[in-house]
């Protein structure tokens, strides 16, 4: 029981459906649609339950349309679920929207929270007013955020002139100005270049480690998850499929890893016992292997001994592949219901 009261997020049996109007094609259909519409039910979330403890850093993944954004919107008080219970920092978000959002931070990678025409500094001033913050305290918080995110040179620049990476750094600062203990990040690295991605990851990691801010991170980028998260929630078609560590997730789905080899000679014959060839494009050969049958160094040793190669690298299967396979398995299991068609 004490464990439960310690949670900062408690979600139990959360479900939500949308009713989507079916549009009939053509002008006649559009006019008919004005008077009579047929609706189709889309289940965005079905019976989702989980808890978040203070200071956790959780990856929330799943394919497009799996219901990730819906969850974030419910937890941040924007949407009301159909059924289910939920508490965020001790409050029911949709009943106490203002009190809830006063205590959480939310960043949507796809859409900025900043004012398009305002210089960054003025955005912060406006947020101080909106959150009714103490100016002296906030000045310290901002100073620290500016140092960590290297915002100094950006403060006078209007938001619309920022690059995507600069904008994301400013968005992060804006979401943390009121010192929330819980931060939702919805695809914070989407579209960013490698340097900006690393900067964002590094910042999130420090925020979590040094300040104990709990983070729920939605992403399609497995590297984000691997770099940051101890725990992963996998959502598929509105259902929570897995709640566990990253290793759990991998072993539940596939042990296979992939190795990519660049050969010196495009025409060279390639053969390697212990691994299967997944595909080949000229110089480049994609292999799959099971690390429990052959260790990575051993496999690499074998390849290097028998072929002349230019380069090689080991990869994990991309997240979409894992999730797609996970969901496929789940259906084949027969444990899912029969409504999919």
């Amino acid at each position: 029981m004490t464990a439960d009261t310690q949670s900062i997020v408690e979600v139990e049996g959360l479900s939500k459906s949308y009713w989507i109007a079916r549009r009939e094609p053509g002008m006649a259909g559009a006019i008919r649609g004005l008077f009579r519409r047929e609706y189709r039910e889309v289940k965005a979330l079905e019976d989702v339950s989980f808890c978040v403890k203070p200071g956790e850093l959780i990856g929330y993944i799943g394919p497009n349309g799996a219901g990730k954004s819906t969850t974030v919107k419910i937890l941040s008080g924007i949407l009301v679920p159909d059924t289910g219970r939920c508490q965020v920092l001790g409050r029911v978000p949709w009943e106490e929207r203002i009190e809830t959002v006063q205590r959480i931070g939310v960043v949507f990678g796809q859409r900025t929270q900043l004012w398009w025409d305002l210089p960054v500094q003025e955005t912060f001033e406006l947020l101080i007013e909106i959150y009714r913050l103490c100016r002296t305290r906030t000045r310290e918080v901002l100073k620290e955020l500016q140092d960590l995110l290297d915002l100094g040179p950006l403060l006078d620049v209007p938001v619309r002139q920022l690059s995507l990476g600069q904008r994301m750094r400013c968005d992060l600062a804006a979401a943390l100005i009121h010192e929330p203990r819980l931060l939702f990040l919805d695809e914070p690295t989407i579209g960013l270049d490698a340097v900006s991605k690393l900067a964002v990851r590094d910042f999130v990691k420090r925020l979590n480690r040094d300040r104990g801010v709990a983070v729920i991170l939605t992403t399609h980028d497995l590297d984000d998850i691997e770099a940051l998260c101890d725990r992963v929630l996998v959502l598929g078609e509105g259902k929570l499929l897995i709640d566990g560590s990253l290793a759990d997730l991998r072993s539940r789905v596939t042990r296979l890893r992939s190795l990519t080899v660049d050969l010196v000679d495009e025409e060279a014959h390639f053969e390697c016992p212990g691994a299967t060839i997944h595909s080949r494009e000229g110089h480049r050969v994609h292999l799959r292997f099971d690390p429990e049958q052959i260790s990575t160094p051993e496999l690499i040793g074998r390849i290097v001994a028998s072929h002349s190669i230019r380069d090689l690298f080991v990869e994990n299967p991309p997240i979409e592949e894992i999730v797609a396979r996970l969901y496929g398995d789940y259906r084949l299991d027969g444990s899912g219901d029969a409504r999919g068609a």
Partner: peptide
């Protein structure tokens, strides 16, 4: 455009 969500995320009316 979904910008109304941004408004709901701020702790004011």
């Amino acid at each position: 455009s979904g910008d109304f969500d941004r408004i709901l995320l701020r702790p004011r009316s």
